[in-house]
């Protein structure tokens, strides 16, 4: 269905908005001691964390808001939060 009367809005159109500007810190996945517990992936509020390999994860910087939940939960301290580089 097309946009109509200003009340019908197209689905899934927020994707093209990047959240990069929200971050103060960004997660760095060290990909060293990971045990593949999936906690970071499942608990990311923005669904930004993605799996590369069984014990290798990273975060999509277009979606990540830098909240730090993944780093806080990581049981083996394999995620660091680093200050976002000033643009």
């Amino acid at each position: 269905m097309k946009p109509m009367f200003g009340v019908v809005v197209q689905p899934g159109t927020t994707r093209d908005q990047k959240k990069t500007g929200w971050r103060i810190y960004r997660p760095r996945f060290k990909q060293k001691d990971c045990i593949g517990c999936l906690d970071c992936l499942r608990s990311c509020p923005d669904g930004a964390v993605y799996q590369i390999d069984k014990k290798k994860f990273d975060s999509d910087m277009d979606a990540c808001k830098g909240c730090g939940v993944c780093a806080d939960l990581c049981p083996v301290d394999d995620i660091d939060m680093e200050l976002e580089e000033q643009q």
């Binding site: 946009p3 200003g6 809005v9 197209q10 689905p11 899934g12 159109t13 927020t14 994707r15 093209d16």
Partner: peptide, 11 residues
Amino acid sequence: TTRFPRSSWQV
């Protein structure tokens, strides 16, 4: 999630 004219919802 729904600030006009965008929406996050795919359902």
